[in-house]
Design a protein around this nucleic acid. Structure first.
Length: 421
RNA sequence: GGAGAGAUGGCUGAGCGGUCAAAAGCACCUGACUGUAAAUCAGGCGCCUUCGGGCUACGUAGGUUCAAAUCCUGCUCUCUCCA
């Protein structure tokens, strides 16, 4: 990125210092606007699940800092666009989502993902939640084409990387999908009209879409809008972040427990710790500089802090402390903690004996008995910390420890408890 | 509208009558080494199993064969070229 001109506004300084800065359509102009008064900025989010995941966390943190530095963040839910369904997964016959589901999703996302990071309300810098269904649903095709379609040239749309890639790979690009960027551009214009929003942010992959909105603002309403994107998050070894064996790393505690969330951050690669601390915690930068220089196994201390802070912000201090406590008991003392997943079984069943393979499926270490068997045969399963090498092993009452549970482990990191009902 | 090519496991991509639950790579899981890291090495990676086997799979519906992912026909979808 090279040497960059100094910026005056607190917000842009934070973006730079914490690694959120990738591209800006007009850095100087935006800096000036942000320096003179309260502005509003937005980021668009999908409404296709009951939760956002850590792939969305960069955007949420950008909005968080935007509010912290005295501005008004807007979370735009793609309710309207969700109705059509994201067409980029062409092979999936994706069911169209009905309005009720979408609204339900939006409610869940607001209460479990945004509320911890943003303060909503009616004050000047309070966050606002909007749904693009409000203005997309009733658009008239003809008048839309006449008023806005004339501002988009296909020539230019074809030049966007997202489009070029698809064409080069000879994978089909439907008109519906092609229109996505037009819709997104229109969202920006609409938000400017409604709330005076001047800035759209997002990941660097959104650059083209955001710029479309900027251009549309200029052409349709003669206003100057701004784009700001953050570098896409990849791990030091080049993988996309945010996946676990269970799927996405959800922010909603009902979909991923705070303990698992804590574990996700505890297990990041050494080389990523500094960047992640800057981006996903609010710790002072001096503190982060100190933490990221820790060498060798000392870096684990930094990872624990990363895990604690990210969990605290998302799930609250109590949950974060509990997750840390459980992790300490499990990994540093070889014991168990209250946050471990657990199942209950009836005493009668345990008296008869429960086949280990059934148990493994029940605690969700394996999706099938065949998979469970392979885990056992591969030496990956332990019962009360003893390796189980016989796939015919049967758990009985005598396996209950003094505290009344059986501890099952798959690999080094997955643990679960079996208790009596 | 016409002429060709193609649709294979999470992805990429071989196979083109039996030896195919299907090569190879990626992803993923487990083990070893470590620091709940990375890299590396080893094993695994459709479902069920009394571990002998059984069952379901190569777009979809039929057909030919003792035998089909492999051949034939209809259908659906995709790509390329021509109009």
């Amino acid at each position: 990125m090279g040497i960059m001109a100094a910026v005056k506004s607190e917000f842009l300084n934070v973006m730079r210092e914490r690694g959120f800065f990738h591209q800006c359509s007009d850095l100087e102009g935006l800096d000036k606007k942000l320096s003179v008064g309260v502005q509003s900025a937005y980021i668009g989010f999908d409404a296709t699940a009951q939760s956002l995941h850590i792939g969305n966390l960069t955007g949420i943190m950008m909005l968080y800092w935007f509010q912290q530095t005295g501005h008004k963040p807007i979370t735009l839910m793609g309710g309207g666009t969700s109705k059509i369904g994201d067409p980029s997964f062409k092979d999936e016959s994706r069911k169209l989502m009905d309005e009720e589901t979408i609204n339900n999703n939006i409610e869940h996302i607001k209460s479990t993902c945004f509320r911890q990071f943003l303060k909503y309300g009616n004050g000047t810098t309070d966050a606002l939640m909007v749904n693009n269904d409000d203005w997309l649903a009733n658009l008239n095709y003809l008048s839309f084409l006449r008023d806005y379609g004339r501002h988009f040239t296909v020539n230019r749309m074809l030049s966007f990387d997202s489009v070029k890639l698809r064409l080069e790979r000879e994978s089909p690009l439907t008109l519906l999908e092609f229109n996505y960027m037009v819709m997104q551009g229109y969202d920006f214009l609409e938000l400017h009209r409604r709330y005076g929003t001047i800035l759209q942010m997002g990941g660097s992959d959104q650059w083209g879409n955001i710029i479309n909105g900027v251009d549309l603002g200029h052409k349709a309403d003669q206003v100057q809008l701004f784009a700001l994107t953050a570098p896409l998050l990849t791990t030091a070894s080049g993988q996309k972040m945010g996946k676990t064996e269970k799927g996405a790393v959800w922010l909603n505690a009902a979909m991923l427990s705070p303990y698992d969330y804590w574990q996700y951050w505890r297990n990041v690669e050494d080389a990523d710790v500094g960047a992640l601390l800057r981006r996903f915690t609010t710790l002072p930068l001096e503190e982060i500089s100190r933490l990221e220089t820790l060498g060798g196994s000392e870096i684990n201390e930094a990872k624990k802090i990363l895990a604690f802070e990210t969990t605290r912000i998302c799930h609250g201090e109590t949950a974060a402390l509990e997750a840390a406590k459980t992790a300490q008991k499990v990994f540093e003392q070889g014991g168990v903690g209250g946050d471990l997943p657990s199942i209950t079984v009836e005493r009668a069943r345990l008296s008869t004996g429960i086949a280990i393979l059934d148990l493994l499926v029940e605690v969700e270490f394996a999706a099938s008995k065949g998979e469970a068997r392979r885990l056992v045969q591969g030496g990956g399963i332990r019962c009360n910390d003893n390796v189980i090498s016989d796939d015919k092993f049967v758990a009985r009452e005598s396996d209950l420890t003094g505290d009344g549970y059986i501890k099952l482990s798959a690999g080094k990191k997955r643990h679960a408890l079996v208790r009596l009902q």
